[in-house]
Design a binder for these strands. Structure first.
Lengths: 205, 205, 205, 205
DNA sequence: TATGAATGAGAGTTCATTCAT
DNA sequence: AATGAATGAACTCTCATTCAT
């Protein structure tokens, strides 16, 4: 009966509703792509009436943008947490690809939507994707490549350029999965290949 | 009474019209993406009435598929011709990325459409892209990697897997260009990086 | 919190709107025929925007089928009710044609649409018409002809074949009306003619 | 080389072409109905280019009207010739239904088109059908019913009204055939039924 | 807050018809 | 006389969005 209590409860319900809508939206966008996704269907398949989703997102586009932002954050957290457990740059590189491929296998629909946005024709979605993935880009450049150089195990490459290269490799491969989310190349293979190109040759006596 | 002449003329007109429509279609698809492309606009911007395009392509989808097929062929020819000029596998790798990045810079719109199709949400387009790019995949696997292994300059990697990796790297990077078609990494950088991972270490005595 | 009330109101609105659309549809189909009927015009002439009709019927064809089903039911009820008031088979026959011709005069547009569907080129419409008119067919075969035979006033004809014949006569004549719905032959004339063919000749001593 | 010869030859070719087009048109109209018939398809399935048909018929509608006229004539000739072989009115009635049902079985497509036109929604087609069938209407009224009355075997019914009734019966039944053109009731059955209603009762002594 | 009836701009597609060759 | 490329009006259907309840 207290306003505070009611507010809290209402807030909680709204948060839950919002999450249900986002969950349904991811499914819909993954299955049909943004243009063919049906916002009414999203709302109803989440268990609400058609109009309800407009109480949470002002437009289909805004819904998509919110989805991109939140998924990028999830993606980053998922990878960064696993990468930073390791101290060695080489190991971190391995963890990067492991966690990265693991993400697209675990979050199949989310991954699909992110890839569509990143490589799709919509400039705004691409732009938002770039922004959203800057932290991951920095993670690779600073906490893996930069670290490896300072640890003396990587050749002195340009961290920024190489980070871009690695991100492209990661996303390019991650975008081509089978129906179960499995990539064509294993994380180990890719990490090996990449480390081969990055590691200093063993100095001969 | 001059059927040969008439046929030739008719054929020529149809070929020209078809090409004009394809040109307009590429522009439209590149700018708006498949779903937001307007087939009427394609026909009129090619200089015809909106119905005309249906004399050449039975549907918007068929137009897109024709575009994919023809562009893939152009893409393959463009790259294969330049790669095969070289005899050394390492040089071929360099040419592959050079020609590849050159293609997306030269054929900006075509490249855009192909990337959208390859990474987009439409299963048929993705499927057709795979099929259309099989020859390029084989080019990389046999005429570059396989050659390098047999020439003794590349480590004995699995050609198929590695070809997939390289194609992913190529397409991943090629998909991220600025407005002029320039990639973030230069062909040389990428080729260097890749060759670093592929080349046999110099054997010390 | 008053779902009952809200539901009832909603339901009522939908029922009314649906009926308005059906009414407009009958007019349109009767005037132009199915193929030339304009579904947008139906919706707007019913007082709604063109898209509204698609909230009630998934397609033009589905609208037509709904119309056929409901009109066939109306038609059957109209005739059966009047026929069954009589106990004598001969009187029932008279009532059948009276009510039948009355129906097409009273429901001019509905009749027109039904006739078009029954004799038109669309196989599905014809098929649905057959199904929809089976009950009327049975009414004639069992409750008129069969009754007359068991009452001893009709010759022992095959009820099914003769019912088909009578339905064909009824529909054939009913399909040819002037603008006011009047048939070329009166119900009495037709009933007389038919009964002449059905009645047992008076047995001479 | 003489103009006359050339003209004759040309006329003959045109007549043949016209007939080929009419044949194809009947098939098309029977299969799809007038509105869904494709005039281009008619021309090409007759072995000509799209435009050719417009050298013979000024419009799709004119083609249909020509078809109706010619088919009605064929229909009339087919029936009248057989009816007039008989001298007795009762036998003529039997021949009428025999020939009538035979016609729709022999000329399946033509029959279909005529029925569609007669019962369809297009007022012009219906009007033309009425006009075209007046001679058959008169055949029934004068050469069958009128004859029977004057021969003393038919009751003194009104020839015009009864002719309308019989035409409706004939067309109603003829319009409902299976795929092979067979009607649900046999000509004998129908003729029997009709004659039962028309014949004078045998006068008792 | 949730609802869902109503809206209407917009798209793909068809095809009768024209006309230059 | 025959051709067939081009035309463009017209139509069905979709669905993001609004808003009164």
């Amino acid at each position: 009966m207290t306003p505070r209590h009611k507010d809290t409860k209402r807030t909680q319900i709204m948060t839950e509703t919002r999450q249900l809508l986002m969950d349904a939206a991811i499914q819909e966008f993954a299955q049909y792509g943004y243009e063919n996704a049906n916002i009414n269907r999203i709302s109803t398949s989440a268990g609400f009436a058609k109009g309800t989703i407009y109480n949470y997102f002002p437009s289909k586009r805004a819904l998509m943008l919110a989805l991109i932002e939140e998924t990028a954050q999830l993606h980053l957290d998922f990878i960064a947490e696993r990468v930073r457990r390791e101290q060695d740059a080489g190991r971190r590189m391995e963890r990067f690809f492991e966690a990265g491929f693991d993400f697209v296998a675990t979050y199949l629909t989310q991954g699909r939507v992110m890839i569509n946005s990143l490589y799709g024709p919509d400039p705004e979605f691409r732009q938002v994707m770039y922004q959203a993935y800057l932290p991951m880009f920095e993670l690779v450049g600073r906490d893996i490549i930069g670290l490896g150089i300072s640890q003396g195990t990587f050749r002195p490459v340009d961290p920024t350029t190489t980070a871009g290269l690695l991100m492209n490799i990661y996303l390019g491969i991650a975008s081509q999965t089978d129906d179960t989310g499995k990539t064509w190349q294993s994380a180990d293979q890719v990490a090996d290949f990449v480390l081969n190109g990055l590691r200093k040759p063993a100095t001969s006596v």
